[in-house]
């Protein structure tokens, strides 16, 4: 038995050496694999963090943009509403100023002139009556011409066009 063991010793030693070499190689390969896996994991984490950062930044930018848009829209709505109010006030003042013409000494002549105007426009057969707020309304079959002072004032403001924008021009 001893003789056989001694005879096989070099083989056993060679096998052990080979096994150790294989084991070393496997350990080294496993180490390299682990390093590679680790590096890949680190890269993936770095990438994920960067991506999350970018996504977060993009979302932040988008939200900031939405907030900016809303704030801008509110500010402009306030400005536009103010313009509308100024225009409405001018219209009111114009109506007040024109209806005040009732007390003017020339008012009867104005009524006469408006009557002529209404009949020229709607026909000579129209019946003319005075409007409670001044001016006249001419009516006939299927036709009506409104030359009351408030209506005339409204038309005058409408005819101003861009001139009215001078109310809020800098």
């Amino acid at each position: 038995m001893t003789a056989i063991r001694e005879a096989l010793e070099p083989v056993a030693a060679a096998l052990v050496r080979r096994a150790r070499l294989d084991a070393d190689a496997m350990i080294a390969a496993a180490g390299r694999d682990a390093e590679r896996t680790l590096a890949e994991a680190r890269r993936a984490v770095r990438h994920a963090v960067e991506e999350a950062g970018e996504r977060g930044a993009a979302e932040g930018r988008a939200q900031a943009r939405v907030a900016r848009i809303r704030a801008g829209r509110r500010a402009r709505a306030v400005e536009l509403a103010a313009r509308r109010e100024v225009l409405a006030e001018m219209r009111e003042r114009a109506v007040a100023a024109v209806t005040a013409l009732r007390d003017d000494p020339c008012y009867p002549r104005l009524v006469e002139r408006l009557t002529e105007l209404a009949r020229a426009s709607g026909g000579a057969d129209l019946t003319v009556r005075e409007h409670p707020e001044g001016g006249i309304v001419a009516e006939g079959r299927g036709r009506r011409v409104d030359c009351s002072l408030p209506a005339l004032a409204g038309r005058a403001v409408d005819a101003l066009g861009a001139e009215a924008a001078r109310l809020w021009a800098p």
Binding site: L114, L117, A118, A120, S121, G122, R141, G142, R143, R144, V145, D146, C147, L152, R155, A159
Partner: peptide
């Protein structure tokens, strides 16, 4: 028809 005295039609 003028801007100042437009005719309104009531015969709908």
């Amino acid at each position: 028809m003028t801007v100042w005295a437009p005719v309104e039609y009531t015969g709908v």
